[in-house]
């Protein structure tokens, strides 16, 4: 490979990356732009690219109209609870489904997988009635507790795929040294699949952070509402305060973006197998 074709490839690579990221940044730019505009400017055609004047009031209004601080804490409670539950239980379950040999393992896994195939619209009511019979409607339990029981088949499946790529010899080495499954899980499998665990953490965070239907159905008191429900309120029955809606969306989405920026660095570090080979 000559240096010339090499440089040519680099240029192409950057060109694709820059073009692609422009395309991807566009909706976000639009969000930022619209969040600082009044109603008339937002829908002007041909569109205005820069707000004029900047309507920063849009960012104050959500806080005046809704108890955003309260919503934030509520959301955080649900997110943290779900995150802990999911990370604990899905990693353990995935370990069992990939690294342990037991009778009926793959059949049980296949059955678990079906839980994603029935649309939520028809399981919503039976599930709700179940929680109601436990007297847990209008609490966070229906939103958090399931995470501690498996943490979602999606996550188990994803982790299983990663665990299965790790060489089996690693386990046997631990057994020889007198270790057990718990040692393998904590010392070998978890550290080696850090990137996959991070991915699950990220997805769980985002899904819970943005979940609208769950909190809407299970929570009745406004004092227990979440940010996603708050956001919906700006889309009224008859009218939508678009500028405020956009500003509120931006406020809600920023933590998620910041989190991803921190997160992706750890993803990049990903641990190469070579490190623990010896």
């Amino acid at each position: 490979m000559t240096t010339r074709t090499f440089r040519w490839q680099r240029v192409l690579l950057y060109a694709v990356l820059i073009l692609g990221s422009l395309l991807c940044l566009f909706p976000f730019y639009w969000l930022v732009r619209s969040s600082m505009m009044d109603l008339a400017q937002i829908f002007e055609m041909p569109p205005k690219w820069i707000p004029e004047p900047f309507v920063l009031r849009n960012f104050i209004e959500p806080f005046e109209q809704l108890p955003f601080g309260r919503y934030f804490i509520n959301t955080l409670i649900i997110v943290v609870g779900t995150l802990i539950g999911t990370l604990l239980s899905s990693t353990i379950a995935a370990y069992s489904f990939s690294r342990m040999k037991w009778v009926g393992r793959d059949k049980v896994f296949a059955v678990l997988l079906t839980s994603m195939m029935l649309p939520f619209a028809v399981t919503l009511i039976p599930t709700f009635i179940g929680w109601q019979s436990l007297g847990l409607i209008n609490t966070y339990a229906p939103l958090i507790v399931p995470a501690f029981f498996g943490g979602g088949v999606f996550n188990i499946f994803l982790l299983r795929q990663f665990y299965m790529t790790l060489p089996r010899e690693l386990d046997e080495a631990v057994f020889v040294d007198g270790g057990n499954h718990f040692t393998i899980f904590t010392r070998i499998i978890l550290p080696l699949s850090r990137s996959a665990v991070l991915v699950i953490g990220l997805f769980t965070f985002l899904n819970t952070w943005n979940d609208f239907m769950g909190p809407l159905v299970y929570l009745n008191d406004e004092s227990k509402f979440t940010l996603a429900i708050g956001l919906q309120q700006f889309q009224g029955m008859y009218t939508a305060q678009w500028g405020v809606l956009m500003a509120a969306s931006l406020i809600i989405v920023l933590p998620a973006i910041l989190l991803f920026m921190i997160f992706q660095r750890y993803l990049m570090e990903g641990i190469a197998l070579t490190g623990i080979k010896g």
Binding site: S96, K101, S115, L118, T123, G130, F149, G150
Partner: peptide, 28 residues
Amino acid sequence: RENWLGWLFAAPAILGFIIFVLGPMIAS
């Protein structure tokens, strides 16, 4: 030992399925 340990490790997920998924599935 792995046979029952495996079930044990998977138990939360299996229980979760039976409690939160299977019931509503049969109901629907």
